[in-house]
Amino acid sequence: MDRVIKAAVAARIAVRDWAVDRVAATRSGRGDRGQTAIEYLGIAVIVAAIILALNGTDIGNKIKNGITGAINDVIGDS
């Protein structure tokens, strides 16, 4: 559970920092120029934190089993 809390806090901080940057960019008039790569990296970090938080938990296993079952339904495996 400690990993989940740490990952959630890290994700929340990343989102807050991104939001502060977006507000500053909008107010300064510099817009979206040059922001794309950094924003994609931020999203990747958040997704990685979520995956790490779910890894090994009961929720993570349920998600994995659901995705595996859906794929098996599509390709016809049992």
Rank of each mutant, 00 (worst) to 15 (best):
A8D: 10
R3P: 00
I38Y: 03
G29F: 08
G34F: 11
A37K: 13
N61C: 05
K6N: 04
V74I: 13
V15D: 11
I13E: 09
I51N: 02
D17T: 15
S28F: 06
A10V: 13
R16I: 05
S78R: 08
G66M: 05
W18H: 01
A10F: 10
D2H: 07
I71D: 00
A11F: 06
R3I: 02
I38K: 12
A44F: 11
A49H: 03
N65L: 12
W18D: 01
G56E: 05
V15I: 14
A53I: 09
V4N: 01
V9R: 14
G29V: 13
A14F: 05
A48I: 09
I5N: 10
A53W: 00
I50S: 03
N61V: 15
A53E: 06
I13P: 03
D21P: 03
A19C: 05
A70S: 06
N55P: 02
Y40S: 00
N65Y: 10
A44T: 09
A19N: 04
I59E: 01
A44W: 13
A11S: 15
G60Q: 10
N65V: 02
I43A: 07
A10N: 09
K6V: 04
V4T: 05
A25H: 08
A11E: 08
I67Q: 00
Y40R: 15
I50W: 06
D17C: 08
N55C: 13
N55Y: 12
A10C: 11
A8I: 07
I5V: 12
R33L: 06
S78N: 12
D58N: 13
D58K: 15
A19S: 09
L54P: 02
Q35W: 04
G34S: 06
N65S: 13
A48W: 14
L41F: 10
L52I: 14
A14H: 02
G34K: 07
A10H: 10
N55S: 15
S28Y: 06
G60Y: 07
D73G: 13
D77C: 07
Y40E: 01
A8F: 14
T36K: 11
G76N: 06
I71P: 00
Q35I: 14
M1D: 01
R3N: 01
A48E: 10
L41A: 08
I75W: 04
V9D: 07
A49R: 04
I67D: 00
N72C: 03
V45N: 07
I50T: 01
T68Y: 01
G56H: 12
I63K: 07
V4K: 06
A70N: 11
E39C: 07
I13F: 06
I13D: 08
A48Y: 14
N72W: 03
I50D: 00
V20S: 03
G76E: 07
